[in-house]
């Protein structure tokens, strides 16, 4: 007989399209990410955040850390190695920094096993 699925048995993964992110303000994006991660979800952004948004994400994460409740986040993106040869216009528009698949999860549940330019391997444990 098939078991009834309990959401607490597994790990929820939110895959968020670039299109959906494009219509949000920086704070909306950060709120959505942290709300998901604080519930124990893994949030995957198709197109990542701008450097300024990453900086704010770190800042807001810090203000929300609290003992025995939330330890912060683990975040992985593909390295920005091609940033140096982005065209002048791309740099001007800040375009070099986006379109990077980004994985974000709760620091106490996610561990990066391996990472290189083309692969991110992550171990996710249940709460």
């Amino acid at each position: 007989m098939a078991e009834v699925k309990d959401p607490h048995d597994g790990v929820q993964i939110d895959l968020i399209s670039g299109e959906r992110l494009a219509n949000q303000t920086s704070m909306e994006k950060i709120r959505m990410i942290l709300d998901g991660v604080r519930e124990g979800n893994i949030v995957i952004l198709e197109e990542g955040l701008s450097p300024d948004e990453e900086s704010r994400l770190i800042e807001v994460t810090m203000t929300e850390i609290s003992p025995d409740e939330f330890n912060g986040i683990e975040i992985e993106t593909y390295p920005r190695s091609e940033a140096t040869d982005a065209s002048f216009l791309d740099r001007l528009m800040g375009r070099e920094s986006t379109k990077k698949l980004t994985v974000i999860g709760p620091a106490n549940q996610i561990e990066t096993l391996h990472k290189d330019e083309t692969l991110i391997q992550t171990l996710v444990s249940r709460k």
Binding site: P51, D52, E54, S55, I58, I75, T77, P79, R80, K115
Partner: peptide, 16 residues
């Protein structure tokens, strides 16, 4: 040196 925090921070510094 190849950590996410370093890559992110250098990216943030470059963008400024």
């Amino acid at each position: 040196p190849f950590t996410q925090v370093n890559t992110m921070l250098i990216g943030i510094i470059e963008s400024q």
